[in-house]
């Protein structure tokens, strides 16, 4: 594992901690898209079907369990916790996320590394992760004002993707047979979705102002 991959995993972890912190400390999930969070649950469950069949390392196994557990906890809070669920901005979270699930699954049936149950679900999870942030980004755009922790959450998620791209570049030059075009292309698409957000994030940071997205 190289430093970029590790930095990517850590920023991913930080994003989840920031989100859990926001929900726990403020007892509020305003500005957070339940649809994006539900998509992440599907992404992790579909991708980590290999938990019981392929052992890579203790690190990988622990991280997989943390990602599954934390995404389930977030969705549980937003749906079941009495105080938290009242703060959910349902009317702003109207993205038709079922289409993303359906589209990703069809794409996985067409484009995959091997035609096996696990590999189809792995490819599905890669495609779905690439678009899972869309309901969240649309929600941010709609509300215009982004509270601090929500902004940090999306920032760290985007940083995670950026580090994974650096990780692939590094692996491409250091590993003789590194070719994983499904993950790399999907990763590029996914990171591109954050470009707009990053632009406004850095402007607000430079001006030391509250993050605001144009309508």
């Amino acid at each position: 594992m190289n430093i970029f991959r590790f930095a990517g995993d850590m920023t991913h972890l930080i994003s989840i901690v920031v989100l859990l912190l926001k929900i726990y400390a403020t007892k509020s999930c305003s500005g957070i898209s339940l649809k994006t969070q539900e998509l992440y649950v599907i992404v992790f469950l579909a991708r980590y079907l290999d938990l019981f069949t392929d052992f890579i390392s203790v690190y990988n196994t622990v991280m997989k369990l943390v990602f599954i557990g934390s995404s389930l906890a977030i969705v549980w809070c937003m749906r079941m916790h009495r105080a938290v669920k009242r703060t959910y901005d349902k009317e702003l979270d109207t993205f038709r996320h079922y289409f993303l699930v359906l589209g990703s699954f069809v794409l996985a049936l067409l484009l995959h590394e091997k035609f096996t149950f696990q590999e189809i679900f792995w490819a599905f999870s890669i495609y779905l992760e690439a678009v899972a942030i869309l309901p969240q980004l649309v929600m941010l755009q709609r509300s215009g004002n982004v509270d601090n922790l929500t902004g940090q959450y999306v920032f760290f998620l985007g940083a995670y993707r950026a580090f994974y791209i650096l990780n692939w570049i590094y692996r491409f030059f250091t590993e003789p047979h590194f070719s994983r075009w499904i993950a790399c292309l999907s990763g590029l698409v996914q990171t591109a979705f954050y470009a707009d957000f990053f632009y406004y994030y850095f402007i607000s940071w430079k001006n030391n102002a509250k993050l605001q997205l144009p309508a």
């Binding site: 290999d50 069949t53 392929d54 990988n60 792995w122 994974y164 993950a183």
Partner: peptide
């Protein structure tokens, strides 16, 4: 060279 075993990224 050995084939990659499974997906090693998260």
């Amino acid at each position: 060279l050995p084939q990659e075993q499974g997906h090693d990224e998260l």
